[in-house]
Design a protein around this nucleic acid. Structure first.
Lengths: 179, 179
DNA sequence: GAAATTACGTCAGCCATGTTGACATATTTT
DNA sequence: AAAATATGTCAACATGGCTGACGTAATTTC
């Protein structure tokens, strides 16, 4: 358990099975250096998203609720269609969690003043508080990670993440985050 | 659609509802600079994981299969318990997808030579090919993202991701990836 | 002013993938 | 011989994606 991968077993040549159909050679970082980042992204995101889970569980919510609460707090008055665009999910998926958030008093829908078909989404005070509470551990984690980095290294982290995003989505992200 | 957030609606002061229970003030990056990284991680990971989905769909597989195939390729002969540890999922969840991968001829289980209770996992040639095919677009994406960065910026990206990982998991990750 | 389009909601049902808890089996360790 | 370990399995359940179809109100277009 402590070792996670016991090298003795993991690199022990040909398995005793039968033919040559099995492969004992590991994919190596030496040959494919990008694997490092592939796996770091996996582990970093896994831990990063685990932060809010405990908080969410107390409310009976999941990660989907978190995402909705987050972006409504970031963009009060956002239209449903725009939220769908950001989250890349379907109306039905959003509808379920949104209903729970509205019922629970975290988000309210306001009829659009110009276009009355729209239901603009606003956080309530409770919803804002929840959003902050969910983000707090993530902010701390990010701040701790950045702390040890030089300014140019920080810039590298940010530029890297921006360029991992689909090129045709970067403008939208830039507009959402600011750049 | 093009604008995603229409500023006109999004920042239009107090919603016309009723009391002061609704909040129109956006959470801002100026006050909370870590939000930039919180959201960049979200979008980057979203797009990063979308790469292999098309390939997976052709096999009727999901992301869970991808993760298993990846780590078995990276560590041929890995024990089931170690894989569970890496993926942070339960035996039952792994069991389902592993069975499909074994039935489909992508992974084989070999009885441990020292400890015959163990079922060491190896990729078949087909499984190795699938692993490479799934990782290819991700490698390209990473390589493209790194290309524009200075050596120190690249180091910043890597150090940042390493430090986002739970501190008590960093040793394990280091052992898995090498550092 | 009628017709088309848009924004949103909803119903029904399906699927993938995570969970818990309990239990079985073979093997190794004590 | 007994205890601990590695793995598998069964049943049941929850979350959160999805599709497709349909309805309604409001707006835009012709």
């Amino acid at each position: 358990m402590a070792d996670v991968i016991s090298r003795a077993d993991a690199t022990q040549g040909r398995p005793s099975g039968d033919s040559g159909r099995l492969i004992a050679e590991p994919l190596s970082v030496d040959e494919r250096p990008e694997i490092t980042f592939v796996e770091l992204l996996f582990f970093a995101y896994r831990d990063f998203t685990s932060d809010p889970d405990a908080v969410l569980a107390a409310y009976g919510f999941g990660r989907a609720h978190h995402r909705v609460v987050h972006f409504v707090n970031r963009h009060p008055g956002i239209r449903v269609a725009d939220l769908l665009d950001i989250l890349n999910i379907t109306k039905q998926s959003l509808g379920r969690v949104l209903k729970q958030l509205v019922d629970g008093g975290f988000i309210e829908q306001v009829q659009g003043p110009q276009d009355r078909r729209q239901r603009l989404l606003y956080p309530t005070e409770t919803g804002r508080a929840l959003g902050l509470r969910l983000m707090a551990p993530q902010e701390r984690r990010i701040a701790d990670a950045l702390e040890a980095l030089s300014p140019e290294e920080r810039q590298g982290a940010e530029r890297f993440l921006r360029r991992v995003i689909d090129s045709d989505q970067r403008d939208m992200v830039e507009r959402l985050i600011g750049s």
